Amino acid sequence: MKKVYIAHPLRGDIASNIDSISHLCRNIIDTDSSILPLSPVLAFSFFDPDKEPVKAMQYCLELLRASDELWVYGDWKKSEGCLAEVAVAKCNNIPIKFKSSPAEPQNITS
């Protein structure tokens, strides 16, 4: 299976963003069973993003480094976390896909 790290903004409307991420991951596996979506938001929900942002990001970036690709969703340019994830992926030569929905890439970089 291809391990795909799912980057999506969390802050703002946290409950709505978590719901969106859950639906994205579900749609991904329903569309392509060869993809293992790795969502740090869902995996590390035990961290409080307001009280433990550095610790949470350390875990997120470790998961990203173990991934085969980074897929970026939502209004990521306004998210410090997503910006960091994109930068780390670029530095580690992890392919990046900016997506508007699970099936539609907007732009692909490496």
Rank of each mutant, 00 (worst) to 15 (best):
M1L: 11
M1F: 10
M1Y: 11
M1D: 11
K3Y: 10
V4C: 10
V4A: 08
Y5C: 04
A7Q: 02
H8P: 03
H8T: 02
H8Q: 04
L10Q: 03
L10A: 07
G12L: 02
D13A: 10
I14E: 13
S20H: 12
S20C: 09
I21H: 11
H23Y: 15
L24K: 01
L24R: 00
C25E: 06
C25A: 04
N27L: 12
N27P: 06
I28K: 03
I29W: 05
D30I: 05
D32I: 02
D32C: 00
S33T: 11
S34Y: 10
L36C: 15
L36T: 15
L38I: 13
L38A: 08
S39A: 04
L42T: 03
S45K: 14
S45N: 15
F46I: 08
F46T: 13
F46S: 13
F47S: 10
F47K: 06
P49A: 00
D50N: 12
D50I: 07
K51R: 14
P53E: 05
P53C: 01
V54H: 12
K55T: 12
M57D: 01
M57L: 11
Q58L: 10
Q58P: 07
C60P: 07
C60V: 07
L61E: 08
L61T: 02
L63H: 09
L64P: 01
S67R: 03
D68M: 04
E69S: 09
E69P: 08
L70C: 02
W71D: 06
V72R: 03
G74V: 02
D75G: 03
W76N: 06
K77W: 11
C82R: 00
A84W: 07
A89F: 01
C91L: 14
N92F: 08
N93K: 13
P95T: 01
I96D: 01
K97A: 13
F98E: 00
F98S: 02
S100W: 04
S101P: 09
A103Q: 14
A103T: 15
P105R: 03
Q106C: 13
I108M: 12
I108Y: 11
T109F: 04
S110Y: 13
S110L: 12
S110V: 11
S110W: 13
